[in-house]
């Protein structure tokens, strides 16, 4: 880990959560890829959730990085779920022909966690927020 990406990889008891806030330069993306793969290996997690709801743009490089993270995590026995992609980002990726076939997707973090059998119970707040 020569160049930490400064994006935290949270360990929620065997489930890893990465939330990308703000645009990611190419070198930071590469660093993140390294961080995440290391974290998966060291924690032995079976699930990885990547939240990109804050991203307004995903270029072909970042898309490839995400696909590679998923592929290498799979080699380490962890399943990756991409969460919260915005419509404009989805349309752009599809127009670029990057449909990310190997990646699982979910609408919200709660839902992705439910997909792993981890239920994040509601502890207040309004219904429509995050469902």
């Amino acid at each position: 880990m020569t160049n930490p990406s400064s994006i935290p990889v949270l360990d929620l008891g065997g489930l890893l959560l990465v939330s990308i806030q703000g645009e990611l330069p190419d070198d930071a993306a590469v660093a993140l890829q390294e961080d995440v793969t290391n974290a998966v290996a060291s924690t032995g997690s079976r699930g990885l959730i990547i939240d990109i709801s804050a991203l307004e743009m995903v270029d072909s490089f970042l898309a490839r990085v995400l696909a590679e993270v998923a592929a290498s995590s799979r080699l380490l026995a962890a399943r990756t779920v991409l969460v919260g992609m915005r419509p404009a980002v989805a349309i752009t990726l599809v127009e670029l022909g990057l449909t990310l076939p190997g990646l699982d997707t979910a609408r919200t973090v709660t839902e992705a966690a439910a997909g792993f059998g981890v239920s994040i119970a509601r502890t207040g707040g309004r219904e429509e927020w995050g469902a």
């Binding site: 991409l82 919260g84 992609m85 989805a90 599809v94 997707t105 609408r107 919200t108």
Partner: peptide
């Protein structure tokens, strides 16, 4: 197909 692919990317 494009619509379906985009929706899938968004988790639906």
């Amino acid at each position: 197909m494009k619509t379906v692919a985009s929706a899938r990317l968004m988790g639906a």
